[in-house]
Amino acid sequence: MRGYKQVAWVRFIPLLFAVVGMPLVLKMVPPNPYYGVRTETTLASASVWYKANFWAGLVAVVLGLFAAGANAAIHRSASIPDNMKMLMTVSATVVVAGAMAVAGIIAS
Rank of each mutant, 00 (worst) to 15 (best):
M1A: 14
R2C: 06
G3R: 07
W9M: 13
R11N: 15
R11C: 11
F17R: 05
F17G: 01
A18R: 07
A18C: 10
A18E: 08
V20Y: 13
V20H: 08
P23Q: 10
V25I: 07
V25S: 11
M28Y: 04
M28S: 09
P31K: 01
Y35W: 12
Y35F: 11
Y35A: 04
Y35H: 06
G36P: 03
G36Y: 00
E40N: 10
E40Y: 06
T42W: 02
T42I: 02
L43T: 02
L43Y: 01
A44V: 07
S45I: 05
W49G: 01
Y50T: 09
Y50I: 14
K51D: 13
K51W: 07
W55E: 02
A56W: 01
A56P: 02
A56N: 05
A60N: 02
L65D: 10
F66T: 15
N71I: 04
A73L: 12
A73T: 05
S77A: 09
A78R: 02
K85N: 03
K85A: 04
M88E: 09
M88Y: 08
M88D: 01
T89M: 13
V95K: 05
V96D: 00
A97S: 11
A97V: 12
G98L: 11
A99D: 09
A99R: 09
A101N: 13
A103D: 12
